[in-house]
Computed example of a mutant assay.
Amino acid sequence: MSPITVVEGRRLSLTRLEKVLYPETGTTKGEMLHYVTTTAGAILPHLHDRPVSFLRFPDGPDGQRFFTKNVPPGTPSWVKTSEVPRKSADHGRQVVLQDVSSLVWAANLVVELHVPQWTVDAPGTADRLVLDLDPGEPATIVECCAAARWLHDRLAADGLHVYAKTSGSKGLHLIVPVEPTPSDDTTAYAKTLAVEAAAALPELVVHKMKKELRPGKVFLDFSQNSAAKTTAAPYTLRARRTPTVSTPVTWDEVTACTEPGQLSFLFGEIAGRLARHGDLLGPLLNLNRARPLPKAAR
């Protein structure tokens, strides 16, 4: 019989808590749920009012993985859902994780959390811009950080604030709070930046997705600004070989990155980082940090 726990007054059945999800580290589902519960104060603000897509990996990263945007069967009635526009159909419904009990319910499904750059009350209108820096082997996070430093200065020249987090996989995400802007416009501006970066750093950056162009370079993916795309949420666990987390980092850490393993953080390290730094992406939630895109980009 599955143990029952009460979270915020709601009864949850938590399943298979002793199951090892990450064999390399012996990390169990129960430990993963503990991480999500104790980190909820940092996770939830970045999910607030955003429809969540799930990458599910119930048997760990070596098992079956499947991506879903639809509300899962059996979702409790108290979990908020919202109708959102879809390209493939007129509308669909997705989960919106607004509280700890809903977050723990979702975590019990064993998921990565992915969100768009817009909220449910303004679908297709972005309040942030994302650049995904993805290294092609043998390039690593070191090359991503070198490209990120150039992009930081370029974005600052346009009067924009920029924050960084690891993808939790191989690369780096740069996030820029912007005044509400149509997703097509943020995508166009992000593409302009990617093209400029590839021209300025031809030995380091590519902006085209062709695989033959990517070995040894950083692919600057601007497409996640599309209204239909999503990005791994801050602090989400990833379905990787070890329980890595998409972790906010300081610009000092980005600047000092000289070794491939430097900016890889496991879930057990996040509490200490939050204690030292607080939420480094907290400024994304401050409307005063949002800036308009340059007029030429709109």
Rank of each mutant, 00 (worst) to 15 (best):
D127Q: 14
L129P: 07
D121I: 04
L133A: 02
W105C: 05
L129S: 03
V111M: 06
A106F: 11
L129V: 08
W105P: 03
V130C: 09
R128A: 00
V110I: 15
D132K: 10
W118C: 07
Q117P: 12
D134R: 13
D121Y: 08
G124F: 12
L129R: 02
G124P: 03
V104E: 10
V115N: 00
L109A: 01
A107L: 01
H114G: 00
V104L: 14
R128E: 05
D132S: 09
P116R: 09
L133I: 03
N108C: 10
D134S: 11
P116G: 09
D132M: 06
D121C: 05
Q117L: 11
G136I: 05
G136H: 08
A122L: 09
V104K: 08
T119C: 13
G124Y: 13
L131W: 05
L113Q: 03
V120L: 13
W105Q: 06
E112I: 05
T125A: 10
W105N: 05
A106G: 08
A126Y: 06
V130G: 01
P123Y: 02
Q117S: 15
Q117H: 14
L129Y: 04
L109V: 01
D121M: 09
A107S: 06
L109T: 01
N108L: 05
V111T: 12
Q117E: 12
P135N: 10
G124H: 13
G124S: 11
W118T: 08
P135Y: 11
P135T: 06
Q117I: 09
W105A: 05
D134E: 14
A106D: 09
A106P: 01
G124W: 13
D127P: 04
L109C: 00
D121N: 15
D134G: 09
L113G: 02
L133F: 11
L113W: 07
D127T: 15
G124E: 10
R128L: 02
D121L: 07
V110L: 05
A126C: 12
P116K: 11
G124V: 08
H114A: 02
D121Q: 15
D127V: 11
A107F: 02
G124L: 09
D121A: 14
E112T: 07
G124C: 08
N108A: 08
